[in-house]
């Protein structure tokens, strides 16, 4: 593989951006690093595990050892795979702007849209951390509020937060829908199915 690599020039659309370092398009190395860190954690915990006395041979450490080996091997293999393979170009910067380059027919444009819809890899290349952050934040607020404030309000906050993150901008309507949704869930699942949800501050009123 390495011997033949210099002979075949990389094809134009997989070549890294000029100016980008070797790491550009190789963010998956972070996944490999995470796996190796997990393997190290497994190894450390297995080695220091408190095993009750009189445990016979295939004890509680046996299977963890196997999984640690698998995890290490998978992490190394992934790192090698990412390092050897030509990097995935960042979609926004290095992909040619086809729509500008040549006029497209209406049909052609539709097909293009369909293609991005069913093959989201290119658009998914960069994660929109702001939107993800709002969704994660809404869940964190929900976790903090649930037991003190109760299901009804915290559930509504979660619904509204996610809806806002995903582009819902009719604030008053969305708050209304969020409250209705969380009340219906409360009535349906606590009332009809007997689930246990915290009533919180509204517990006395309802």
């Amino acid at each position: 593989m390495d011997a033949t690599a210099p002979a075949t020039p990389p094809s134009p659309d997989t070549r890294p951006r000029p100016g980008g370092s070797w790491l550009t398009g190789r963010s998956e190395l972070a996944v490999a690093a995470l796996l190796l860190a997990m393997a190290a954690f497994l190894a450390w915990q297995t080695a220091t595990m408190h095993v009750p006395p009189e445990t016979e041979f295939p004890g509680p450490r046996f299977f963890p050892v196997l999984v640690t080996i698998l995890m290490t091997a998978a992490g190394i293999a992934l790192a090698v795979l990412v390092a050897v393979k030509p990097p995935v170009p960042a979609a926004d910067d290095s992909a040619p702007h086809e729509a500008e380059a040549e006029p497209e027919t209406n049909l052609g444009h539709m097909v293009q849209d369909q293609a991005t819809g069913t093959h989201p890899q290119h658009a998914a290349e960069t994660i929109d951390w702001r939107t993800v952050g709002i969704v994660v934040g809404a869940l964190v607020v929900f976790i903090v509020l649930l037991e003190p404030v109760g299901w009804l309000l915290s559930g509504a906050v979660l619904f509204f937060g996610v809806s806002y993150a995903l582009g819902g901008r009719r604030i008053a309507l969305d708050i209304g829908i969020a409250l209705v949704f969380s009340s219906v869930v409360q009535l349906l699942f606590v009332g009809a199915l007997g689930l246990n949800l915290p009533a919180g501050i509204l517990g006395g009123i309802l």
Partner: peptide, 26 residues
């Protein structure tokens, strides 16, 4: 889409909490 996925999130949180009544699971 925003209502659909907001509903799914609320349902996910509901299910996980209802299964064990534990904030740690959330």
């Amino acid at each position: 889409k925003n209502y659909l996925y907001a509903g799914i999130t609320v349902f996910a949180a509901l299910g996980v909490y209802a299964a064990s009544s534990s904030v740690a699971d959330l």
